[in-house]
Amino acid sequence: MKIDLNLVGAKGAIAEAAEGKWGMTIDQDVCTGCQACVAACAMENNLSFVGEEDAGYGRTQHWIRIERFWEGEYPEIKATPNQPMLCQQCGHAPCEPVCPVFATPHSDAEQLNLQVYNRCVGTRYCANNCPYQVRSFNWRDYHIDPFHANMVDGKLVFALHNQFNPDVTVRRRGVMEKCTFCIQRIHKAQDTAKAEGRDVFDGEFTTACAQACPADAITFGRVDHHESLVSQLSHHERGVKHLEELNTLPRVTYLKGA
């Protein structure tokens, strides 16, 4: 095998093309915090709910969460614009190199952060190193807790399991997970387009959160296609990347202000 010397290096990391491939914009000015994206994500990606106690202790499995803070004091108080926080699919993802088993490598083809559930051993280093804190860990076997089951003919029947999306793996305890930009939808759209001998066109599909969002705050698509809506929005003057100063090259652009 020929060793490409460009892959061996002692200096800083190679800058990936700053734009990436898939990207998202979130208009914080119109986000109402209605949680439809969170619910849609949960339904699409087989997220488990964790119950009252664990949820309050910081163990929710939300892949997207809506952050709000306060400004000022009563009566001049304002809730800050809602900030839906999800995996930013960084070009320089801090979570990636720290995994000892390559469970969260970078996809060169899709330029996304992959999470390989069945490779994960649960060191949780990636979650520590994520500046956005968007990774969630399966602290327990939430899905197969007998509490959710009914005993039918001596067997535990989990009625809720009927709803599982067959395109998405169901995770068990000890595994890290995070937003995938609905990679199952990306692949499906690409397969369809390939079968029809064309490219995926802008708006042909979108992520579950963007699809549900009643305020149309979320836009998803190819940021490297300059005519696409998401690309144009991400170059909007209101566009801001979260924690940009860390050089993580996030793929999500927040439209701030008005």
Partner: peptide
Amino acid sequence: FGTPYLYADTVSVGGQYVTPV
């Protein structure tokens, strides 16, 4: 410096070199 080249496609992580010094 050897194992990362044992696959057809190298696995890239965090924008780092495949075989960092």
